Amino acid sequence: MEAQLRGVEWLNSASVESSVFQLRPDYRAFLVLAEGLVPGESDAVSGQLLADAELKVANELDGRRPEELDELAAWREAYRAFGAKPQRTRSSVEALVRRVDGGLPRIDRITDTYNAISVAHLLPLGGEDVDKYVGPAQLVRATGEEEFETAAEGQPAVEHPKAGEVVWKDDVGVTCRRWNWRQSTRTHIGDRTVRALFILDGLLDVTSESDLIAAGEELQAALAGFSPEAQFSSRLLAP
């Protein structure tokens, strides 16, 4: 109970900077904290979730280019608003949708699960290892001085976001650049992850609050399928 309370308190300390809402007043974030997850390799269940998502988005596309979908086009506009070029740095959900024809990646059952929900609902969804965080999750406009731990040519590297870039961060550095483009190697989900934060990004132009929450609830149900003892907390961040 004490550990769960700490988890809820940590989740309640998450924030979105007012400058982000000024950029996109219709932005909403639905956060899901999962504790007591059972990590593991990709399996038949997570594979089926991905296969179902692949079929759903293929039907949605019906021969169209990914950027012609309203949900992906809206995120392209959100990226342009802070100076990013979406043709070069795509939202996480567009990057996944573009891989559907060749098959979505099978990584591990936690990652497979949230990727499947992301594609099925056409919204960006990322997962982070909570135990690797230092301080709360914060969505801000970067100063440009923050550190972002990543990999370059197979080696650890540190980058810095551009000033004004929308980034998720904690008290140590950036955990995800360009809203939902690329996650840090520092907080990525691995084979020892048992506590994870999932961030579902929504724009009200294309995704209602109720649809965003419904996707989060579907995520929790899918995670509980292989982690029956897991406990979940959630929170909607809005202006």
Rank of each mutant, 00 (worst) to 15 (best):
Q4G: 00
R192H: 09
F30W: 15
A44M: 12
G63F: 01
T193S: 11
S208M: 07
A3M: 13
F82A: 01
G216C: 05
L204W: 02
A44P: 04
W75L: 10
R24M: 09
E146C: 07
V32E: 09
Y27E: 06
K132N: 12
L104M: 12
A44H: 06
F30A: 00
T207N: 05
R98I: 05
G225L: 04
A81S: 15
I107V: 15
S19P: 00
W168T: 06
L72M: 03
V158L: 11
L23H: 01
R88L: 15
S18H: 09
S42C: 11
E54I: 11
S42A: 15
I107G: 00
D129Y: 08
G127P: 11
A34D: 07
L236V: 13
T111A: 14
P239L: 10
G202N: 10
Y79G: 05
N59L: 15
F226S: 01
F198P: 07
L72E: 03
R76M: 08
R98L: 09
R182A: 11
Q138G: 01
A73V: 08
V16N: 02
E146V: 12
E149F: 13
R76Y: 00
V38Y: 02
P66L: 08
H160S: 12
G40Q: 12
R186S: 08
G103R: 10
A78N: 02
E35F: 00
S15T: 12
E41V: 06
P228Y: 05
G135N: 03
S234F: 00
R109F: 07
D108I: 00
T193L: 05
M1T: 14
E128L: 15
A14I: 11
A3D: 12
L50Y: 01
L11D: 07
A230H: 05
L197C: 05
G216R: 02
I199P: 01
V97T: 08
R177G: 01
L122D: 01
D191F: 05
D201F: 09
E9Q: 14
V100I: 10
W75R: 02
L50H: 01
Q183M: 13
Q22H: 05
L123C: 12
A120F: 11
L23P: 01
P228W: 11
D112E: 08
D205A: 15
L200Y: 01
L203C: 02
A3P: 03
A53Y: 12
R141H: 14
A222H: 12
A151P: 00
P161Q: 04
L69F: 05
L5K: 08
S42Y: 03
A84Y: 06
N115V: 07
A73G: 05
T187L: 13
T113W: 07
P239T: 00
E165F: 02
E41C: 02
E67V: 14
D129E: 11
E94K: 07
L123K: 08
D129C: 12
V206D: 04
F198C: 09
Q4T: 12
E128C: 04
F226L: 04
W168H: 12
E17K: 03
D62M: 08
D52R: 15
K132W: 07
V172C: 10
A29S: 15
A44L: 13
S118Y: 13
D52K: 13
V206Y: 03
F21A: 06
L31C: 07
R80T: 09
E229H: 09
E71R: 11
G154W: 06
